[in-house]
Design a protein around this nucleic acid. Structure first.
Lengths: 331, 331
DNA sequence: CTGTTAGCGCCTTCAC
DNA sequence: GTGAAGGCGCTAACAG
């Protein structure tokens, strides 16, 4: 690969001149600029971005770390991130945290390959983030709470959301409500469980551990959990799924067993993923403000990058989306 | 940020020794190694990945360029890419080509920031790719055909797929079949249109331009195109949508106008996106081997990286997925 | 306006 | 086993 040196040599100028010309500085005469450009073209010269970043000590790019790049449910969030990043003229790259400590994500988090990082990946350990946090390296986490002055947090109000979902079921006349939970190590899940319990408690309904089954936040998991619930042979009146993905799996399990939603049992989810609108029946769920979360995250990064003070913690609220998977048992 | 120099100084060794120690070379005594490690920890040292990549002249990462990161329909493809990349111990980053010549994608394509690139982004111009192509910089394109010895192509057989889809409708007794097309500048779209025409022709059916309407490959576009078709007041018996996304929009338009699928009109799509299974009625479509395409793309990159010869062109075939959106009019 | 030069942070021969 | 020194490709003072 030709370097700037080669270009300079061919054009018969010094490297610095070549550099100036290539970067369109006005320090260079049109004539020389043309000469350099022609040389560059002739050699098919492409600058080495790594080298210039190293020199500049900034990359103009921010990284979005996701637990799995192929998970289709970040769409809205990514959009928020993308839009704002672009208006600031920065680059955005997405990378996955699959693969533990050897993952791409960690490399970007630890080594100074980007100017800022947004994390939405439960499989990254708190300590990892802690030890990467430092002055002048903005990190925003969207999936956890972390006490560190260099990391900023944006959370949706999971407790309130789960409370609302559960209470909605209660208001609609359901007394026996199961919770299909996400993985135990998920902070989000913990908070949603909490909200569920709070609502139960608030309405003097008992919390029964037989009605808390783990579904790992996956469709498959929701399917299996629901099958287990059915196997217990004592169906609740309503099911609150820790996320929509599991609810979709649950719907399928229910259908397979000839249980109709919402006639026989009501179902409510959490997230409002794209699919929710299309499953049958359309899923009632708690909508997360994903676009806003993404946009806010980038926003914070840029403020931090320009050394402005920002709040360390933001909480976004969820919103009930009524569709057709919950029956009004009072009616 | 502390550099390796600081670590060396604190540990009381030379930078080279520190470097060896940090990279776990066996050239260094256990004792010194420990000393260095301790110093690094104390300073919360994080190596600068840019610098080491610059020195090594390879990054161990490959980039996947997509036209829009938030488009949820690459899921399977990304998975294929991701899986294979990981088994090779390489990093994967995804970036978007939104933003034209200022886009992140182009930066990665032009400057040597990654070891290889996979492109699935119709909004990147052929010439851009051409001028970035060079020895030792593997590029695989999934969305076009390009005559360049340094770029490799993987295509699904769009012509055959569209032919099969159209013929399927014909076999099921449909004579009048509309094609809702993607954007004019899309190579994929052109080929699908070709396949559609071929099938018509093959069965002595006339091609009528009033039944070719453009839907831009988006849901919204499919919706609008369908509305236009309805407004023409002369509905065909079947509609072949250039992709599922448009079909989903079309289904909605049809429903709004009280036209039932498949009783009143049959619908077939192309792609087999995740949603297709869930819409109502479940969409019959041509499944693209997306995972395979992604996996193959990475595979090629690695072969190229190790200087193996590979074919310059691969064609993958599609597969009919029968669901419930097509009626058998012969029955 | 152009050329000389000194690093950015790291790795890696080459001597010792 | 360890240290000194050169250089990856580029930018940006600083001179001229």
């Amino acid at each position: 690969m030709p370097t700037i040196k080669d270009v300079a040599k061919l054009a018969g100028v010094a490297v610095s001149t070549a550099s100036y010309a290539l970067n369109n500085s006005n320090k260079v005469k049109e004539e020389t600029k043309n000469k350099v450009m022609k040389a560059a073209e002739e050699l098919n010269y492409q600058k080495n971005g790594l080298a210039s970043d190293l020199k500049r000590t900034s990359t103009n790019t921010i990284a979005l770390i996701l637990s799995d790049l192929s998970g289709p449910y970040y769409s809205e969030l990514i959009k928020g991130v993308q839009d704002i990043t672009r208006t600031h003229g920065f680059d955005l790259i997405a990378c996955s945290s699959i693969g533990g400590s050897a993952s791409t994500a960690l490399k970007f988090l630890r080594e100074k390959r980007v100017d800022g990082v947004i994390i939405l990946a439960h499989n990254i350990k708190d300590e990892t983030i802690q030890s990467s946090a430092r002055q002048d390296f903005p990190i925003v986490v969207l999936d956890r709470s972390l006490d560190n002055e260099f990391v900023n947090e944006i959370e949706v109000d999971n407790v309130q959301g789960a409370f609302t979902a559960t209470e909605y079921l209660i208001h609609k006349g359901h007394q026996e409500i199961a919770y299909i939970s996400g993985p135990a190590n998920s902070h989000d899940n913990e908070l949603r469980l909490q909200g569920y319990k709070n609502a139960l408690n608030h309405h003097q309904l008992p919390y029964r551990s037989k009605w808390k089954i783990s579904g790992e936040f996956t469709r498959e998991g929701g399917y299996k959990a629901t099958k287990m619930l059915i196997a217990q042979n004592d169906l609740p009146e309503g099911i609150f799924y820790g996320n929509d993905e599991m609810a979709v799996g649950g719907l399928q399990a229910l259908k397979e067993n000839g249980i109709t939603v919402p006639e026989d049992i009501s179902v409510i989810g959490f997230d409002d993923i794209q699919l929710s609108e299309f499953v049958s029946p359309p899923l009632t769920t708690m909508k997360q403000p994903k676009y806003e979360a993404g946009a806010l995250a980038v926003h914070l990064i840029f403020q931090l990058l320009s050394n402005e003070k920002v709040e360390n913690y933001y909480k976004l609220s969820t919103e009930l989306v009524e569709r057709e998977s919950v029956k009004d048992r009072n009616a």
